[in-house]
Nucleic acid binder design. Structure first.
Length: 611
DNA sequence: CCCCCCCC
């Protein structure tokens, strides 16, 4: 006889977390999902006091039923679950059994009779409040049946079929600003936080949701009063009727959804939860292989699914623009394209990420591509994050990882620059992905944005400017400040506010770089200048001091030498003049074997694109 | 009517 955790179901349905409740399976029903062809098991749970008729087994647990290990009468310790509110009115909560231990079994009929059957929770709960044991945000994987909800919950619509609020129900793709007699029936796939803003027009708050139906997707925005009215009601994964909202042209710069329009709720807007889910898709994914992300430009949005192979610590950084402290955490994600990419979580998502879950599958819908040292991903406020989602692609990538993928040689798209990204490794320029020819510097307006742009290039040094290339600097450990000769045998550093008996040489070398396409000036500091001139700064300083003619030769001899460069382009203002300054971050001599291979790859890629 | 998404 097992001690069931009496009262635990009510607590769960009331939105509380309950650690490892002992429950009995008293009913079980096989549901065929005609969307993905997967079998789902709907179970009735009993806690010794009440029953809940709406539990769903995560599909990865199906085998336990099929091998008869889990059956009617089984007693389980429920270690991980997600309680999802399907509707508030009538209240309907599904408990998804994600992870549990089978303790044994009791006779499902001889046990004490339930005092009551909970089919409806006493209190309305919100998804966010039901702490799914291992989630990083409200978008915890929702792993359950899709189309057969009507099998056990009959719709209770008061509207004539195909209408809502007196309007015909249209597909999202047919909405436009010129026709306002419409209703839609759509599923919420993403919901933002409430954001406040303050600008010339005043202050306000807003949120947005993403909606899908079988015809398309659209973003909807709610401002101010509509935030108060609709924010709580609209829940991720739930289906709603919506009518009488404003449609306007979407700004493609900001909207990554496939729709020319977006919706704004207004004070006439009517929204109502809906039980009929009509085969509505749960998420509209356009999954990219991680290897494909190298073909994406910065600021593209991509959908990826992979295994989290390593998790960085939550770190605090200070933003440049606002001097604000910000948390960040980097995850390295791999998939069966045998590539890895770093995805950065920010703020609360970085703090809340549960790093105790080893090698979970992560789904990122709408992650933003960055091009720092190769390619990176950034999880923005509109990115949908799901941990261990119950979709076929998740099982595929997990299977690949477990059956040797974790041991395979992985190419990391995010650690291909000097310094890497903190997740590990490569240091040579040759592994970089953002190679450019020099004409692209101007053509692509590199450095013209707010931030610096980094790129790699193979170029010749046409000319290294000798004049003013060296200066006498403070000998202090980390001070490279220009030092002043006091002409009394001492040298004054204003930064350190002291006199020194000596100085050290430093280099700021301007070079003119050229490839077949263009030429450009770039500044090389110390180490990069040493690489180009092929001499140490101190040694060069001595040549200069002694007026050795070899000093001039050093500069003339580097002409027409070829190097791989990692360059940084950034707009700077000097004497009221704004221009893009280019400086060398890294300079490496060319390994011609590796360089040839890189170019061959480029040619192959080019040939592929021509087909 | 927002539209910032940050750092190396």
């Amino acid at each position: 006889m097992f001690q069931l955790t009496r009262g635990s179901l009510k607590k769960i349905l009331d939105g509380n977390n309950v650690a490892d409740p002992i429950l009995q399976i008293t009913q079980m029903k096989n549901i065929q999902n005609n969307m993905d062809g997967m079998t789902r098991y709907k179970v009735t749970l009993f806690d010794g006091e009440t029953q809940h008729t709406f539990g769903i087994l995560a599909t990865q647990k199906n085998a336990l039923v099929e091998s008869n290990q889990l059956r009617i009468g089984s007693v389980i310790k429920l270690e991980e679950f997600a309680a999802n509110v399907l509707s508030k009115d009538p209240p309907k909560v599904v408990i998804i059994l994600l992870n549990f231990e089978i303790l044994g079994e009791m006779d499902a009929n001889s046990k004490q009779q339930p005092a009551a059957t909970i089919s409806q929770p006493n209190k309305h709960v919100q998804n966010e409040n039901i702490e799914p044991n291992k989630s990083i945000n409200q978008n915890k994987a929702k792993s359950f049946f899709d189309k057969k909800e009507a099998d056990f919950e009959k719709p209770q619509s008061t509207n004539p079929p195909g209408t809502f609020n007196g309007f015909k129900v249209f597909g999202i793709s047919s909405l436009n600003p010129y026709q306002n007699k419409w209703a839609i029936k759509a599923r919420v796939t993403n919901k933002s936080n409430i954001r406040t803003y303050s600008n010339a027009r005043g202050e306000g708050k807003l949120f947005n949701v993403e909606l899908i139906d079988n015809t398309g997707e659209i973003r909807a925005n709610g401002f101010n009063d509509q935030v108060d009215k609709f924010y709580e009601m609209l829940q991720i994964d739930q289906v709603y009727y919506i009518s009488k909202a404003t449609l306007k042209t979407a700004n493609k710069q900001y909207c990554r959804l496939d729709n020319d329009y977006e919706m704004t709720f207004n004070n006439e807007t009517v929204i109502q939860p809906c039980d009929e889910t009509d085969n509505l898709p749960r998420i509209n994914l356009n999954l990219a292989k991680i290897s494909d992300i190298s073909n994406h430009a910065a600021n593209d949005f991509v959908d990826v699914i992979g295994v989290v192979k390593s998790v960085g610590d939550c770190m605090t950084i200070v933003t440049k623009s606002t001097n604000k402290e910000l948390k960040k955490r980097e995850l390295s994600i791999v998939d069966n394209s045998e590539c890895a990419i770093t995805a950065t979580l920010w703020g609360k998502q970085a703090e809340d990420y549960d790093s105790s879950d080893s090698f979970p599958v992560i789904l990122l819908k709408g992650a933003k591509v960055g091009d720092y040292n190769g390619r990176t991903l950034s999880v923005t406020s509109t990115t949908v994050v799901q941990i261990n989602p119950d979709i076929p692609e998740a099982h595929t990538v997990k299977g690949w990882f477990e059956q040797g993928g974790s041991e395979s040689e992985i190419q990391d798209l995010s650690s291909q620059g000097a310094g890497g990204s903190g997740m590990g490794a490569g240091t040579s320029i040759i592994g970089h992905t953002n190679w450019k020819f020099l004409d692209q510097l101007k053509d692509e307006k590199l450095g013209m944005g707010d931030k610096a742009d980094y790129f790699s290039t193979k170029a010749y040094v046409l000319y290294a400017k000798k004049d003013n290339s060296m200066y006498t600097a403070c000998p202090g450990e980390n001070c490279n400040k220009k030092i002043f000769d006091q002409n009394d045998g001492t040298y004054r550093c204003e930064k350190c506010a002291r006199n020194y008996p000596n100085f050290k040489w430093r280099m700021i070398l301007n070079i003119n770089l050229a490839d077949f396409a263009d030429s450009n000036w770039a500044t090389c500091f110390q180490e990069t200048a040493e690489t180009i001139l092929g001499i140490g700064t101190e040694e060069l300083g001595e040549l200069k001091n002694s007026n050795d003619p070899k000093f001039d030769e050093v500069f003339s001899e580097c002409a027409f030498k070829e190097f791989n460069f990692k360059l940084r382009a950034k707009m700077e203002t000097y004497n009221d003049e704004r221009r893009v300054k280019v400086s060398a971050v890294t300079v490496e001599p060319i390994d011609y074997v590796q360089s040839g291979r890189r170019i061959l790859e480029k040619i192959k890629q080019f040939a592929k694109e021509q087909v």
